[in-house]
Design a protein around this nucleic acid. Structure first.
Lengths: 153, 153
DNA sequence: CGGAATCCCAAGCGATACTG
DNA sequence: CAGTATCGCTTGGGATTCCG
């Protein structure tokens, strides 16, 4: 995070001068994009389209759990952001082909980084979740940290 | 999931307190992690904690828009996944320090890849969204692709 | 075939109030 | 200080139906 996109507070807890997003929140572009990526199907669709162009129902069959509605919405989102293209072939019955744009393909790399991380650490995460879940019952005492923080501000 | 044995439910109905999540979709670990990353605050919190450990209210002040509720939930999520640690200092008033674990820090790199991509292409995306938004009204004709797909079957 | 429209439930999230 | 509890609004998303 090369640090220029969001007014993340610097090292010291400063009085905090935020450029106030006066109106509603639009957040930083990172958050914005991340929410796209975080929805249930976008990543999967991008990855599949990363292989080759797909027709609508072909894509539908290629991604088992998805509904037509969500496939359509996801594709519209990608199209709107310029990540995927939509080509309509005026045949009967109509044929529509979706493909990643250059921009869309440029996302594949960064996406893979996170995806690889997820694959690599999935078991560790799963174990952590299980462990924390158990500790809910055993509910031990308070940790004894190596140093004591002075709360006195 | 767990197997091939046909364990016929016996006379006794299983008490079933916990929804043992025979749920159809647990999806792949990638999707699972991506949804965590895709929620509204997780990434921001991870990035901020990536700088140094923070106390709760310090973190609260450091992330302008977030509510206590969502900060708590986000931190609990990170803790559950083993990405962040929570250290309680038995002082008065109490002091709680949050920090990234090694696992959490290992996510910073991959996350940066996507974040940098977002920063780098935010304007292109914004222009695309604006353009598509306009085309909703001008609503042009059908594209004329270079080849004709045979709809076949 | 490739959608759009509608319905409806569940999850995400924010605001507020209360607590140890 | 560091939370928890409750409420209600807003989105996300699945199922179904209809249409060019």
């Amino acid at each position: 995070m090369s640090g220029t996109h969001t007014d993340v507070p610097s090292m010291v807890a400063t009085p905090l001068v935020l450029p106030v997003v006066a109106d509603e929140y639009e957040q930083c572009p990172v958050t914005d994009v991340l929410r796209r990526v975080g929805d249930k199907w976008t990543v999967l669709v991008v990855v599949v389209l990363g292989q080759r162009p797909y027709r609508f129902n072909e894509l539908h069959r290629g991604i088992p759990g998805i509904s037509q509605r969500m496939l359509t919405r996801t594709l519209r989102g990608l199209e709107e952001d310029g990540l995927a293209s939509r080509a309509v072939f005026p045949t009967v019955p109509p044929s529509v082909e979706y493909a990643l744009t250059d921009l869309g393909r440029s996302l594949l790399g960064p996406l893979s980084a996170v995806a690889d991380w997820a694959v690599e650490h999935q078991e560790q995460i799963a174990r952590s979740r299980a462990r924390v879940g158990q500790e809910r019952f055993t509910a031990g005492g308070v940790q004894e940290p190596s140093r004591i923080a002075a709360p006195g501000q």
